[in-house]
Structure formats: structure tokens, C-alpha cells
Design a binder for these strands. Structure first.
Length: 273
DNA sequence: ATACCGACCTGTCAGC
DNA sequence: TGCTGACAGGTCGGTA
């Protein structure tokens, strides 16, 4: 589900709830484990650590950890969570029912639990011991010149380029379509064929869309925390991303649905060139 | 080196 | 009600 604005919202919510808490113990499910690091390595890193912060890097959630052993010079420890399509992180009372498809449970010093639930198992857990970095540029930090340079001489459709995490980290199907709609650019256009003016519009649209979505709390982040507090359910207004066959909200032309790089893509044939 | 495409999983929903 | 097939906001590895 989650793209940059959703992950940002989730990370902020978690930061508020678990920063300062200590991880007493860790349970990881057997089965085909959705782990990038070994279960032993994850457990060893997390157990006994204090969570000093939670932040977003690309589509990853990074928990910064402090271990009792190291002084200020100690190497960093981080728990990295990628939610995939259906992953969720829940802060729950220890006695709350454990949801189906729960793959990890962290018992916290506060008596609560941090749980990772992921029905489809596209999510990934890992630990990192050096500053974790995304593969591509951070969409909210990248300047226009760098942004434009990413697409130079690239023959792939602009939609594919936007989804390529090695170029920009954090954009997914929804926000790619939405920013292309606002910029008036068809998703199949070869990336290198965009004019400078179109790149400018795409850049501005992307910034605008991401900021709006973060302000709205993500597109459809529903109850990512159960237990204590704010439900965090918002609906972001998509202008472009209607279903295929529905009329464009701007010009009433029927929205087309095509498949690009295996992902369904919606665009208005009249508004987008 | 680059770019498609299927595979990885489970759940949901429309249509019959 | 139950079955089938299409689809879901993501990534990876193999292949061309």
C-alpha cells in the first residue's frame, strides 16, 4: 500500500508513540520469513536496545537504536522495515489479540507491543549497522536540475522512471500517476522526450502532490496503530487517478487504463500529452 | 548496462 | 452460496 506520504505518516506516528521505549524481547515468526537479515541477527540487534527515533528513508521505516554496550562512538544500529504492499506496524497493548499474519512482535518496556503484520508478505525486515541510505534521491529534497538530469537519455516510459527507486526513492504507482496527470504528461512518454517545461511541471506537480498528501496524512492509511490514540484515517483527493472508463474531472474525457511495466496506469488522453 | 516480465503472496470483489 | 478470474499503492531476479 504505502508510498512516501503514507510511510512518512506512519513513521511520524510511530516516532510519537515509541521513541524512548526499550525493546525487551523479540519474537519472529517461523515459516518463510520475510527477512533480509537473519532472524538471529535481528533479534540480537533489537533486544535490549532503546528506540531513539523513527524516520522515513524512501519507502523504508528506520528505527534508530541505542545499545547499552556502545558509547557515543559506537557504530549505529538500525531496524529497517519495508512495508511492501500490505505491511502494517501496530502499537498494541500486550494483551490485545494477535492478528492473523503477524510476523514479528517486539515487547516494549512500556508494556506495549510493536507488531509487524503483513498478509501478502511482500514486506521486509532487516537491521543495518551503518547509516542506512536509500538507493535513489529523496523526492522531497532533490532540486530541479538533479531531477531533470535523472531522465536525460532515458528511453523508458516516464512512468517507469518515476517508479524506479534507484532514481527517486519513495514514489509508487498512485503518486506517479497523480503527478503525471497534474503535469499534463502521458505516462508512456519516453522519459528523455520530455521538454524542459514539462519536466518543470512534473517536478512542481510531484512536490505539490507529495506535500499535500503528507499534510492529509497519506492516501488511505487506516488504523496503522490500534490501541492508544489517533486513528489516522484520511482521504487524499486524487484528481487524476480515477478508474478507467470514468470521466476526467477536468475535461470529462474518458480516463484510459493501460498497463506500463506491469502496473495499471490511468491517464486522460486529452489533458495529458 | 538497461529494460521488460513473471514470480513472490494473500485477500477482496465483480460476475456468473 | 460458491467458484473463478482479475486486481491490489512493491520489489527482485532472470532473460533478452
Amino acid at each position: 500500500m504505502p508510498e512516501l506520504p503514507e510511510v512518512e505518516t506512519i513513521a511520524r506516528g510511530l516516532a510519537k508513540r515509541v521513541t524512548g521505549d526499550r525493546i525487551e524481547s523479540v519474537w519472529l515468526s517461523r515459516k518463510p520469513e520475510p527477512l533480509k537479515s537473519s532472524a538471529r541477527e535481528i533479534a540480537r540487534t533489537l533486544e535490549g536496545a532503546r528506540i531513539t527515533g523513527v524516520r522515513r528513508v524512501g519507502k523504508h521505516i528506520v528505527f534508530d537504536l541505542e545499545k547499552a554496550d556502545g558509547g557515543p562512538q559506537a557504530k549505529p544500529h538500525q531496524w529497517i522495515v519495508h512495508l511492501g504492499m500490505t505491511g502494517r506496524l501496530l502499537v498494541a497493548a500486550a494483551n490485545a489479540e494477535v492478528a492473523k499474519h503477524t510476523h514479528a512482535v517486539l515487547q516494549l518496556g512500556s508494556g506495549r507491543e510493536l507488531r509487524f503484520v503483513d498478509p501478502r508478505r511482500f514486506g521486509r525486515l532487516a537491521v543495518a549497522h551503518r547509516a542506512f541510505q536509500a538507493a535513489g534521491s529523496e523526492p522531497l529534497d532533490v532540486g530541479f536540475e538533479l531531477f531533470a538530469g535523472l531522465f536525460r537519455r532515458r528511453k523508458t516510459p516516464i512512468k517507469s522512471a518515476l517508479l524506479n527507486q534507484k532514481l527517486l526513492s519513495g514514489i509508487g504507482n498512485i503518486y506517479a500517476d497523480e503527478s503525471l496527470f497534474r503535469a499534463g504528461v502521458r505516462p508512456r512518454r519516453r522519459a528523455a522526450s520530455l521538454t524542459r517545461a514539462q519536466l518543470r511541471r512534473l517536478y512542481d506537480a510531484l512536490q505539490q502532490v507529495l506535500h499535500e498528501a503528507i499534510l492529509a496524512g497519506g492516501s488511505s492509511v487506516s488504523d496503522y496503530v490500534d490501541a492508544d490514540g489517533e486513528p489516522g484515517f484520511f482521504q487524499f483527493q486524487h484528481r487524476g487517478n480515477q478508474r478507467g472508463g470514468e470521466p476526467c474531472l477536468v475535461c470529462s474525457t474518458l480516463i484510459q487504463r493501460v498497463v506500463i511495466a506491469g502496473r495499471s496506469s490511468h491517464y486522460c488522453p486529452k489533458c495529458q500529452k
